[in-house]
């Protein structure tokens, strides 16, 4: 283990959780992330190898799947994000790349994103982004825009969401989420 101490996306030494009425917003940093982009003509091989590694079928457009230690969501045509606990796999590329071989391009994304785990009714989104809540059902991953920031909205369950934005604007994203929570709570 390196003898350097990491900081959280919001720049603290510990993670922050805010509760506003029935809404909670928790800064989270426990996922290692890697992007998986199928190489030309190797989509099937990518799917097969990913299934072998994670036990998951990489989902179609807008999809999010989870099982065991893995989560996977669709990011772009023939490209996905894989997530697994950081504690188990600090160097996620070292874990994923051998399994995928030359079938896909793997890029570390762990620190590219700041993540907030949110407990809130789906109506919370209506002050934040222009997506139809009827389409943001559990098991979807939606890339959209909140306050000019590109984000991914993962809906895990009825009131369980994660919002991921680029790490450098974690503070602005957090502020936007809190403001919306105060407005609807």
């Amino acid at each position: 283990m390196p003898d350097l101490t990491p900081i959280t996306p919001l720049g603290g030494s510990s993670l922050r959780t805010d509760t506003i009425g029935a809404i909670s917003i928790a800064e989270a940093d426990d996922w290692a992330l890697a992007s998986v982009a199928a190489r030309a003509g190797q989509l099937e091989d990518t799917l097969t190898r990913a299934r072998k590694l994670t036990g998951l079928d990489l989902p179609g457009p807008g999809g999010l799947v989870a099982g065991g230690d893995w989560r996977a969501w669709w990011m772009a045509p023939e490209a996905w994000m894989l997530a697994t606990p950081l504690s188990a796999s600090e160097d996620i590329v070292a874990a994923v790349k051998p399994a995928l071989g030359d079938a896909a391009s793997i890029t570390e994304q762990t620190d590219a994103w700041a993540r907030f785990d949110i407990t809130a009714p789906v109506g919370f989104l209506e002050r934040l982004c222009n997506v139809d809540p009827a389409r943001v059902t559990p098991g979807t991953a939606t890339r959209t825009v909140m306050e000019h920031m590109g984000v991914v909205v993962l809906r895990h369950g009825d009131q369980a969401f994660s919002v991921l934005g680029v790490r450098s604007s974690a503070g602005s994203l957090h502020h936007a989420l809190l403001t919306a929570a105060r407005a609807v709570a």
Binding site: S35, A37, R39, A40, G41, A79, A104, S105, T107, E108, Q109, T110, D111, A112, W113, V166, R167, S168
Partner: peptide, 15 residues
């Protein structure tokens, strides 16, 4: 579109 190339931004991933 025939080239085998994959792109992703890593600006925020690395300090």
């Amino acid at each position: 579109p025939g080239l085998d190339v994959q792109l992703i931004s890593t600006t925020d991933a690395w300090a």
